[in-house]
């Protein structure tokens, strides 16, 4: 029983991590209909941002959210404006461009750091809370709390604020939204900025948990894709729940089979979901084709 409880806890905490990482990807996909292959690299940049704030300015990694999140927001806006906006109706070129960004950022960081692994220390992060037989690491608990807050916050934002309503209008029908006076390009820039900022926040919160390496983004992007496909493309709650499902699956398969095979197990789930519900468990049917439809 204690083992079972521990596995469930580990799975849920891991699910929080995956959910947080996937949310930015899903926001960008849901609104702009761009699959951002470089999303994991944005998380990686967030982690290095936290490292730099810690090493150079002596800030607690958690405080560096104040620097990293706005920084990545601006970077995201720049990327959307100068790289992705010109490719708006070119899904194939978007794959090339975002993959090019992935390679560029990853190897840029590799070149600068020379491949040395860094780690960030935070006094808060290493605290462990015991509840009965279950040990909870505070750093992971913070991630879990954040993902819940972010999901609720985004839900509130798109439902009850004017900019949020504009985002929903653009998602539903770009042309009609434009006719209503919404600046679609501006909404896209803000959305990509927000997606990048979410990635940055994920990076900051994960920096005390993982050893930093330039390639770490690749681990996250696959998890994020699995989560997004499972939960539903473009559905925020889908990413939230999909994250927990993938986290639990990883925890259980790691315990009962072999942790080395977790990617293979994700992939099996991935394929199974694709066969049964290509739009994801919570997605709208046909969402997997939406990116290819003409919209302007």
């Amino acid at each position: 029983m204690a083992a079972f409880l521990n596995i469930v806890t580990v799975g849920l905490l891991l699910g929080g991590i995956y959910g947080l990482v996937s949310m930015g990807l899903n926001v960008i996909f849901g609104v702009i209909r761009i699959v951002n292959f470089a999303q994991g690299e944005l998380v990686m940049l967030g982690m290095y941002g936290a490292y730099m704030s810690w090493a150079l300015l002596g800030m607690d990694p958690y405080l560096s959210v104040l620097i990293v999140v706005p920084g990545l927001f601006v970077l995201g806006m720049i990327l959307q404006r100068f790289v992705l906006q010109p490719l708006q109706n070119e899904p194939f070129m978007q794959i090339f461009a975002t993959f090019g960004l992935l390679m560029f950022f990853q190897n840029l960081v590799l070149g600068i750091t020379g491949g040395t692994g860094y780690s960030v220390r935070s006094d808060i992060a290493s605290e462990v809370i015991r509840i009965g037989p279950v040990n909870l690491t505070l750093s992971r608990l913070i991630v879990l709390a954040t993902v819940i807050v972010v999901a609720l916050g985004m839900n509130w934002f798109v439902k009850y604020t004017m900019p949020g309503k504009a985002v929903r209008a653009v998602t539903q029908d770009r042309r009609a939204a434009r006719l209503m006076g919404i600046n679609v390009e501006w909404v896209f820039m803000l959305t990509f900025g927000a997606g990048a900022a979410l990635a940055g926040m994920a990076g900051v919160l994960l920096s005390p948990i993982y050893t930093l390496s330039p390639q770490i983004g690749s681990n996250f992007i696959l998890a994020a894709f699995a989560v997004v496909v499972l939960g539903g493309l473009g559905s925020v709650w889908g990413a939230f729940i999909g994250g927990f499902v993938i986290g639990l699956v990883e925890a259980f398969s790691g315990y009962y089979f072999d942790p080395a095979l977790k990617h293979a197990i994700w992939f099996l789930i991935f394929i199974a979901v694709l066969l049964v519900r290509p739009g994801g468990l919570f997605g709208i049917a046909g969402a997997e084709e939406m990116g290819l439809r003409e919209q302007d």
Partner: peptide
């Protein structure tokens, strides 16, 4: 995977490559 189109096909094949690596 051919049920998927465009970027989603690319994602699935990317995942496939990672699984093969594992």
């Amino acid at each position: 995977t051919f049920r998927l189109k465009g970027p989603f096909f690319a994602i699935a094949t990317l995942a496939l490559n990672e699984v093969a690596f594992v």
